[in-house]
Nucleic acid binder design. Sequence first.
DNA 1: TGACAATATGAATAAAATTGAATATACTAA
DNA 2: TTAGTATATTCAATTTTATTCATATTGTCA
Lengths: 125, 125
Amino acid sequence: MSINYEETANKIKLLAHPERLRILDVVRREPECVCHLTSLLGKLQPYVSQQLSLLRKAGIIEDEKDGLNVYYRLADEKIAVWLDDILGEAIGEHSKISQHKKLIACPCPKCETETEMMTESVFAR
Amino acid sequence: MSINYEETANKIKLLAHPERLRILDVVRREPECVCHLTSLLGKLQPYVSQQLSLLRKAGIIEDEKDGLNVYYRLADEKIAVWLDDILGEAIGEHSKISQHKKLIACPCPKCETETEMMTESVFAR
DNA sequence: TGACAATATGAATAAAATTGAATATACTAA
DNA sequence: TTAGTATATTCAATTTTATTCATATTGTCA
């Protein structure tokens, strides 16, 4: 039962990146599509897809296709606990996320639905 | 209370390294001197000092000088918890450590003393 | 089918981390 | 003081990682 430091370090390495951390901080709350994450991060779409690809290949996140959109979520509960340790508990911050959803310009169906439900006055489209 | 992803990533980055992880896995159990860590890692002393320097400057470990020797330990309990999450609990593996101590060729006073009798740590107060 | 929209991949370059080697510093003892 | 031992620092070469951009793929709908 000895520790493989090499392997452990490689796993952590993927989390040691600001944009990837931010992606994980979002998708640990609920699955989000690429266009949504792109808007949130303020980066170009290919860049975001690359980070997602790294996380996906490492088994940290999973993707689920829905038509044109691809939604990403955490691959398992162990990673959620990991993120809780690193970023703090994710519970109780959903309102903050919802606010984000209103602010960003994301054309995905999920966002449109949520925007209709939650925002009436401030941001008309 | 929003998260600084940049800062968080930089902290994690230091842990995402096999030799540094190994150093931390040793010193989280009890303080060890540089010559001891050098023997354990099987690397050159300047290399080990470099890694220690990085960890020290980031506030992850602390040093305490005792004559010629410099002993390193974790800087605070929060980091110990962090390492427990990453490497597993450190409890109950002291015998393994002691064994290591006999096997490696470390000339520091602490090692010499410990092979004779299990004495208290340098940091004991 | 063709056009379009969302996402993915690959290649080139820029930036940063890793490492080894030479050398410097600090402490002790004679 | 000088010699010897433990540790630290600096620098340059190499390797790895980050980032951008152009382009490819995939799914939808008229």
